[in-house]
Every structure is written in structure tokens, then in C-alpha cells.
């Protein structure tokens, strides 16, 4: 059964001056999924996210959050949205608790009880009464999430949520986001320029470049039929000849050969190599990465 659509973006456009920054974006977010927003720096991710949260007015197109258009029904739409745009910039001169209190006061019916709940959820109970300026980046990030969750949103928008976190922090954040989507049924939109991050975290991905969505698909489908095999053989030239007669090959700088992976054919190729008197030193099945796909789709558009 199709899950409910929580965020729907149609024909979104933004023109600044004469430049069209965002050209006709259309996508949907469903309940309980983590949606990745992937693109190089300057592709328009942040501009899009700022339009989604109402900071920038779209030139044309519509954004609906839980059925409420954000231009006509700003308050209703924002009630079901939680977000962190870029870094969670909270008030450094207030304590964590006062920051949460500050944002709770801007929502209806969010009391002390809920503040305690979210504090516990992000694991900040011990430091919540300290000033935010004494917090580490990871703690600020968590406080930011706590703040975003205060109003029990249906949609959570996180712009570069793992920015500046250490590897342990990144892992923790990833687990936390998965938890929110799977257990709490939130739709989470995550933007990132880190492919590995999106690959591990998201159910579906939109690849965006120069203001256009190039492709939207599930991670599995995007990566299907993209497993490769690395061959390490000796003598190299002879092996290369044999392999190229069997399938398309790609020669790497470190004197290895890349071919596609095929469950049935790969052992067959190996056999042929051995028969031709080539010693096969290593056969390595390489898991696919979005990186390659990305480069392929964007035509080598710069990416970190």
C-alpha cells in the first residue's frame, strides 16, 4: 500500500535577478521514509530547503506540508514541520533548556513535559541547564534536533545534519534519524553532498544538479546492476586480451582491470583466464557507490 504523502513539491522555481536558481522541482515525501537530497555545492539544495521551510519565497510552484500550502496556510503548514537549516544556530547566551523553552513558546501546547521528553530523546538531560556556548558541536546538533522535534512534527527537514560531526557522532546521528523514520513514522528529508552518507541513510534519493532534479529513485534501484569486479592478473597484457574478448573492460592505473559483475559469467571468465595460462591473483567484487552514478549523471559536475 502506498504510504501517505506528507510533503509535496510541485514545479518549484526560484529566480534571483535573472538567474534561474531552481528550475521546476517536483517530488514527494512519504510517511516514514528518509529522503536524500543529493547534489554538489551550489546545486540549489539549500535554496530549495529554505523555500520548503518558508524562509525564501518561491517564484512559482507550490509546496504542501500535510496538505497545507505554505504560502496560504503558513501557520498550519509549519505546525507539522521541524527543521534545521544548515547549522543549528541556537542562542549561545541562553541555556539549552531556555533555548527549548524559547521555541516551545512559539508553538501551541508544548509544555515542560514535552521539553523533558525531547531532551531525554537526544540524550542531553545532564547538560540541559548549561549555557549553549559551552556545548560541543555534537551537542549543539542534538539540541537542534530536540528543538525541531518539540512540536511533534510529521516532516523533519535536516540540512547537512552530519556536518562537522566526528565519525562516532555521524553514526549516532544516522541511527537516530533511522529511528525517527521507522519507529516514529516521520518523513525525513536530508540534504548532503556526502554520497556515502546518503547511501547508508536514505530510502530514496533525489539527485540534483544546477537546479534540476536529474533522477529520483530508491537507493537499491539506483545501484542495481552496478556491481563491478576488479581483476588482478599476471601477465597483465595477455589477461587483458582474454577478458576484452569476453566482455567490456576498463583498465585502471594500478594495472588492474574492471569488468561488470555477473553471477553466472564471472566464474566463466575466470576459468577462461586460467585456461589461457594467466594467473589470477585476485578477484574482488566491488560494491557499487552512488559516487560513480553521480558522476555519470551529472557529467562530472564538481563534488566533494
Amino acid at each position: 500500500m502506498e504510504k501517505k504523502i506528507t510533503l509535496s513539491v510541485k514545479n518549484l522555481k526560484k529566480v534571483i535577478g535573472r538567474r534561474e536558481i531552481i528550475k521546476n522541482l517536483t517530488f514527494d515525501l512519504r510517511e516514514g521514509e528518509v529522503f536524500g537530497f543529493l547534489g554538489p555545492n551550489g546545486a540549489g539544495k539549500t535554496t530549495t530547503i529554505r523555500m520548503l521551510v518558508g524562509l525564501i519565497k518561491p517564484t512559482s510552484g507550490s509546496i504542501q506540508i500535510c496538505g497545507n500550502n505554505i504560502e496560504d496556510h503558513f501557520q498550519e503548514a509549519m505546525t507539522s514541520l521541524g527543521c534545521i537549516v544548515e547549522n543549528p544556530e541556537l542562542y549561545p547566551y541562553l541555556s539549552g533548556y531556555n533555548n527549548l523553552l524559547h521555541f516551545a513558546r512559539m508553538l501551541d501546547d508544548v509544555g515542560d513535559e514535552r521539553i523533558r521528553e525531547v531532551t531525554e530523546l537526544v540524550g542531553l538531560t545532564e547538560r540541559i541547564h548549561d549555557k549553549v556556548k559551552t556545548y560541543s558541536l555534537g551537542m549543539r546538533q542534538r539540541l537542534g534536533i530536540a528543538q525541531a522535534l518539540l512540536g511533534k512534527p510529521k516532516v523533519l527537514i535536516l540540512d547537512e545534519p552530519t556536518n562537522g560531526l566526528d565519525p562516532a557522532g555521524i553514526r549516532e546521528m544516522r541511527q537516530f534519524i533511522r529511528f525517527l523514520a521507522e519507529e516514529e513514522g516521520l518523513s525525513v528529508l536530508v540534504s548532503s553532498h556526502l554520497l556515502s552518507e546518503i547511501q547508508l541513510l536514505c530510502d530514496r534519493v533525489a539527485i540534483i544538479s544546477k537546479g534540476v532534479i536529474i533522477r529520483v529513485d530508491t537507493v537499491q534501484q539506483l545501484l542495481e546492476n552496478r556491481e563491478r569486479v576488479v581483476w588482478h592478473i599476471d601477465p597483465f597484457e595477455k589477461g587483458k586480451q582474454v577478458l576484452s574478448s569476453l566482455t567490456s573492460i576498463e583498465e585502471k592505473d594500478d594495472r588492474t582491470i574492471l569488468t561488470d559483475f555477473d553471477e553466472k559469467k564471472t566464474p566463466e571468465w575466470n576459468k577462461r583466464l586460467v585456461e589461457a595460462g594467466v594467473s589470477v591473483i585476485e578477484i574482488n567484487r566491488k560494491m557499487p557507490v552512488l559516487e560513480d552514478l553521480f558522476l555519470e549523471l551529472t557529467g562530472g559536475d564538481t563534488i566533494e
Binding site: G54, Q75, L81, E86, P92, F103, D108
Partner: peptide, 14 residues
């Protein structure tokens, strides 16, 4: 300059 304007204006308050 703090950047907190982004949090302030994304609340359900006009």
C-alpha cells in the same frame, strides 16, 4: 548574525 533568524522564522508564527 547568529543565524537564529532561520529558527525563529520557521515556527508556526507569522
Amino acid at each position: 548574525s547568529l543565524g537564529s533568524i532561520k529558527l525563529l522564522l520557521t515556527r508556526p508564527v507569522k
